[in-house]
Structure formats: structure tokens, C-alpha cells
Nucleic acid binder design. Structure first.
Lengths: 221, 221
DNA sequence: CAATGTTGTAAACAATTGTTTGAATATGAA
DNA sequence: TTCATATTCAAACAATTGTTTACAACATTG
């Protein structure tokens, strides 16, 4: 067939519109008309709008988790031989590489990151629950490896720092278009996603390895 | 009067609901019923939902910019005397202190940060434009001071790093509730906003002072 | 007091939302 | 072919949205 099938057309259109305007701000009629598909097709194929949102995420996260698990398998196997601990840089590098690989096929890394950002910031409680349940284990595996790579960090400190850098990455890459416009206008330099990751690397590493904070100030009691 | 007036009741209720669920997901009927106010009151006092959203932001950002300008005046005056340059730490410290001061009266720093996060992540183009036009100048002043404090950084690099740490702060503080739940469950330690800022300080400073990235890889041409 | 402008209110408005229906059409196996 | 299943489609559904209207209540000022 010349045209991709209905399900694919819906997913392709939905992910772009969701990334552009958010979930609540994107109506089914909006999606179906742009996808040149009947309105009822969404409910027929996906059941509901919620399920469509989850399906959009699965299409990215399923291949991501598969590849990421494989990459971590590799990494662990290589370091089991010489008995060394996987350095933090390598872990971060592996994650970055996997994130870059997955959506490369469809040229939509931007969309992927924007969706991730939305998953955090939009209300959509069902989405957070869905992502946690479906993909929580790969994140747990990763954080466990980070724990071994940074034994000097207290557990709680590491937890927060991981989310600090997660914030940096998601915030930057999901708002990339707007930031890129400003950057090009002000500094006349074109910024690709790979450039950004190159800039992010030393910042993220330094952030994770920053000196420990002063102990909390005790109130007189 | 025992009850605060209608306008205040609407603003108080709206900011909480907006922060909890986002703008599109919060209906006017939702706000007015919870605020025990007639539905038409919003359009009567504010004109439209958009204007209400902007008014919610003004109530935080107006006092913030005023205080922040004053704090920067102080800082500059003190350093003009001995001719020294304001160190980065002091600039960041000043900003953090101002952010903490402003909503302290209403015990709603969480709401404030969450709103800031929404302003970035939600579609609401009118909001971004409004904030940029109304409050862009204070941000420009701040970045100019940061420029003087970090002369070793190329302009573009500093631009990106500022947005990296902006991402960290907004992402963390605006998703605070969810993260706090996980942290308390996993590490049995209660985290206040002040704790978080204490943890953020060394991370942000290290991030800004990270080594420069490797120069971009040149393709063969 | 009377007049005037401000604020509060119930009801209706038109538009848009996600979802469902039932019939039409296409597809594929017997 | 024939039958059954899968898909598409236009239409309608009920619910919810932001906004407007017309009127009542109130306050303020002359």
C-alpha cells in the first residue's frame, strides 16, 4: 500500500501534535483530520484517548528499553572480565547513545524528548503510572549501576542529583526549539542535538561529582 | 470583611488548581465552585481565562522582580566600592534568596515553582510572550552579571549552561511533590524546599564551572 | 432620599470535547 | 461464489467548555 495503515498514520500524527501542544490541548478531531482518518478510528483501534497516549509512548519506550538493557548487558559483561567497576562517564555515555539511537530511524529525537518532558509536567496521572509500571525496572537497573559507580555519594544525595541532571536534560531537549532560536539569533551558531549532548557531557559529570552540600542547619530546639 | 474579596478568592483558588493540574485541565467552573464565587465573576473581573492566568503570574512575578532588582542594586553597590566583580556564587545565592522570600508570605513556594514549570512546558503561547515582555529585562540584567562573573566561558557556552541549571531547578522544584514522595519512601527522610536548595547549591556551581566541552568533531569535507 | 455606578447572580449561549451507534464497505477464508 | 470478520464512515450523543446576557443587589455619591 502506498499509504501507511490507519494505526500508523494515527500514531505518527498524534505524536507530533502531542509534542507540539500537549495532550489536553490536542483533540481527536485534530489528529484524525490531519491524519486523514475517520474520527471513530481512534476509539476503534485504541479504545480511548488515554490508550492512544500510552501507545504513542510505547512505540518509543519499548525499543528504548530493549536496546538499553542490551547495552547495559554488554557493559556489565565487559567489566565482569577485568573485575572493574563501570565508571559513571561510561554509564552516562551509554544512556546518551541509546537515547540517540532509538528515534534516529524516524528523525524524531526532538519529539521523543518533548514527549518525555510532557510526561513529567502534564497532569495525566495515568501516564506517569503507566510509564512507572512498564518501564520502571530499566531505570532501577540503571540507578543501581550508578550507585556502584559513585560509592562516595550518600544514597539520598545520589537520588536527588540524578533527578537534577534528568531535569537538565529533559528541560533542555524538550524545549530545544525555542532555545535554539534564541541561541542562533544571539550567537549566530547552529546547534544540533549532538552539539548539545557534547555540551551536556562535562556539565552533567561535574554536577554528579560536585562536593557534598553543607550539613543542614540545625534549628535551636 | 471576614472573607477575602472575590478577586483574591479567585486568584488564591486558581493558582492552586493551575499548579495541581495545569491550565487547560482546570475549568473556570472548577475554580469558581471551589472559591465559592459565581462563575461569571471570572470574566467580570479578569475578562477571560487567559487574563486570569496572566494575573496569577503577575501576583508572583511583580514582587519578585521588584525585590530582585533591589537585591541586585545592593550587590552592585557593595562591589562598586571595592571595585571587585560579583562572584557567581553570590549571584546565584541572591537569586535563590529572592525566590525563597517572595512567596514565603503565603507559604506557597511550591505553587510558585510549579507555575514556572508550567509556563515553560504548557503550550500557552500567550503566557510565554507575556512573561518575556513583562519580565524579560530583569533576566537580561541577571545574565549580564553572570557574564562578568564567568569571563572564561564563551558566550554561547554560558547561555546553554544557564539554561541547563534553569532546567535543573525548575524541573526539580516543580515536580517536587512526586519526587518528595519517592525520596521519603525510599530514604525515610523528609525534604524541605530549603533542604533541596542546600543540595542544589554545589551542584549548580559545579555545573557552571565544569570544564569546557571538547571542540565539535569535524566531518571530513 | 434618589440617582448612579459597581458587583453579584442565574440562566442561556454556542462551540468543542471524547465516545458510541449502526449501517456501509472491504477483506479474507471456506 | 458465500459467508464471516475486520475496518471505515457519517451521524448523533451527552457532557463540558469559556463567554455573554439580563437582571437583582448593593454601595456610593450628589
Amino acid at each position: 500500500m502506498a499509504q501507511p495503515d490507519t494505526v500508523t498514520r494515527i500514531l505518527d500524527t498524534a505524536e507530533v501534535l502531542f509534542a507540539e501542544r500537549g495532550f489536553a490541548e490536542t483533540s481527536l478531531r485534530n489528529i484524525t483530520s490531519k491524519a486523514k482518518v475517520n474520527l471513530a478510528a481512534v476509539n476503534y483501534h485504541f479504545g480511548s484517548k488515554k490508550s492512544l497516549i500510552q501507545a504513542v509512548f510505547s512505540r518509543y519506550l519499548d525499543p528504548f528499553t530493549t536496546r538499553f538493557h542490551a547495552a547495559l548487558d554488554d557493559l556489565e559483561a565487559r567489566h565482569r572480565q577485568d573485575g572493574s567497576i563501570i565508571p559513571l562517564e561510561e554509564l552516562l555515555e551509554t544512556m546518551a547513545r541509546t537515547v540517540l539511537e532509538v528515534p534516529a530511524e524516524r528523525n524524531s529525537l526532538k519529539v521523543f524528548m518533548r514527549l518525555l518532558g510532557l510526561a513529567y509536567s502534564q497532569a495525566q496521572g495515568h501516564l506517569r503510572r503507566y510509564i512507572q509500571e512498564e518501564y520502571g525496572s530499566v531505570f532501577t537497573r540503571f540507578t543501581e549501576l550508578v550507585r556502584k559507580a559513585t560509592p562516595e555519594l550518600p544514597d539520598a544525595e545520589r537520588f536527588w542529583r540524578l533527578h537534577f541532571v534528568l531535569g537538565t536534560v529533559i528541560f533542555t531537549l524538550s524545549g530545544l526549539d525555542a532555545l535554539r532560536d534564541i541561541a542562533e539569533q544571539d550567537y549566530h551558531e547552529h546547534v544540533s542535538v549532538r552539539d548539545l549532548i557534547r555540551r551536556l557531557r562535562p556539565v552533567v559529570v561535574s554536577a554528579m561529582q560536585a562536593p557534598l552540600p553543607e550539613p543542614p542547619v540545625q534549628e535551636v530546639s
